[in-house]
């Protein structure tokens, strides 16, 4: 059952305020990943144990010089259809939220599951993300 939207809105804004594109339908996810560029998809969630560090970690990481061309987010438990579509693109990966998936085109090249986010500070999460960006995102986003 979804949480009240007024509870969730600030958690959405923690990402959208940093330029992350909110994907609220399956079609939006499909369109977002219909590209040859690199994309990061952040699976947001209300969980304080993990998402409380994930959102600021992601916000920090996407300010780095080398980063994906596009950054989007789906909200697990809230935007169910969009989240399922994002997970369809990661078919071999068990579902978890929060989590982060890095794509080249529509191919998953790196994944940060929930258990590698839980209890960690935003700087540590950002460090992992930036390492993945430097490995997989060859061009510097403008």
């Amino acid at each position: 059952m979804p949480y009240p939207e007024e509870l969730v809105t600030p958690m959405r804004k923690e990402l959208t305020d940093h330029g992350v594109t909110e994907l609220k339908s399956a079609t939006e996810v499909e369109d977002f990943l219909s590209t040859d560029e690199t994309s990061l998809v952040i699976v947001n969630s209300v969980c304080g144990c993990a998402a409380g560090g994930a959102r600021p970690g992601a916000a920090l990481a996407i300010q780095s010089e080398t980063r994906p061309a596009r950054v989007g987010t789906v909200f697990a438990g809230q935007d169910v259809e969009a989240t399922q579509k994002a997970r369809d693109f990661c078919a071999q990966v068990p579902p978890s939220s929060p989590s982060m998936a890095l794509f080249k085109g529509s191919e998953l090249v790196w994944f940060l599951p929930r258990h590698m986010i839980e209890g960690r500070d935003p700087q540590s999460i950002a460090f992992d993300l930036v390492q993945a960006f430097e490995e997989h995102c060859s061009s510097t986003a403008s």
């Binding site: 969980c47 144990c49 998402a51 409380g52 929930r114």
Partner: peptide, 16 residues
């Protein structure tokens, strides 16, 4: 920001 349940112990919500 998020939902926290500190009274549940340090492993609450953690994948073990």
């Amino acid at each position: 920001m998020g939902t926290f349940h500190d009274h549940m112990g340090e492993l609450h919500g953690i994948t073990v």
